[in-house]
């Protein structure tokens, strides 16, 4: 726990330093790197625990998500979104969903995000001007709403009653494999599967029609 919180604190200090004293980035970075090494040396046992890695991935995920929202340049946003997706793929792995983790990387990071990158580059979008958090009633209202929503979610999760503690090792070997998912997809959810294929065709035709140069 010390290691995790320490690392988070180090990153926070580095960010603050880059913001307020951009000229001294290199010495501050070197000092903080030394602090990190010290932290690892102090609590290296924690490196082997699942909680540490989960926490670290979660921290990265939240940070990258925030940057997606905050960063004025769409290209940067896309790259941080890809980082976020990788984090979630790691979460899937922790949750014994190996197949999901794989297709998360292949489909999301590999296909959908490429599409985003292409479009951003195709349109040659500049950094958004006038991006102000807390500017205007609707934006500040949105932040307030977001906080309220998060609070509600926390409250709900806290009060969902006693939940069992799971040992990932105790799972049967078929859970989360491609074979397991495939069996479900082609038996119980076959209709939905076929419907999804039609949806994809429709989306493909729609995209082609919409993106054609002349709508005629």
């Amino acid at each position: 726990m010390v290691l995790l919180l320490g690392l988070i604190a180090v990153v926070a200090v580095f960010a603050l330093a880059r913001t307020f004293v951009p000229a001294r980035t290199v010495p501050v970075g070197a000092a903080l790197g030394a602090v990190m090494v010290a932290l690892v040396a102090y609590d290296h046992q924690e490196l082997a625990s699942l909680e540490f890695w989960s926490g670290l991935i979660g921290f990265v995920a939240i940070m990258s998500a925030l940057l997606v929202v905050i960063h004025p340049n769409p290209m940067v946003s896309v790259l941080f979104l890809i980082l976020n997706l990788f984090c979630i793929a790691l979460f899937f792995l922790i949750l014994n969903a190996q197949f999901l983790a794989v297709i998360q990387v292949i489909i999301y990071a590999g296909a959908i995000m490429v599409l985003f990158v292409f479009v951003v580059m195709l349109l040659n979008l500049k950094a958004e001007e006038g991006l102000r958090l807390g500017g205007g009633p609707q934006r500040s209202g949105a932040v307030v709403l977001g906080v309220a929503f998060a609070a509600l979610m926390f409250y709900a999760i806290r009060n969902r009653g006693a939940a069992p503690y799971f040992e990932p090792e105790s799972f049967d070997s078929g859970f989360g494999t491609a074979r397991g998912i495939g069996r479900l997809l082609f038996t119980r959810y076959q209709f939905a599967f076929e419907a999804a294929s039609i949806l994809l065709i429709a989306a493909m035709i729609g995209a082609v029609v919409l993106a054609k140069r002349k709508l005629r």
């Binding site: 609707q138 209202g141 949105a142 709403l145 309220a148 929503f149 509600l152």
Partner: peptide, 13 residues
């Protein structure tokens, strides 16, 4: 979208 989100939060509450 803002109105929609507001409604969602109120209903959830």
């Amino acid at each position: 979208a803002f109105a929609f989100f507001l409604g969602t939060v109120v209903v959830l509450f």
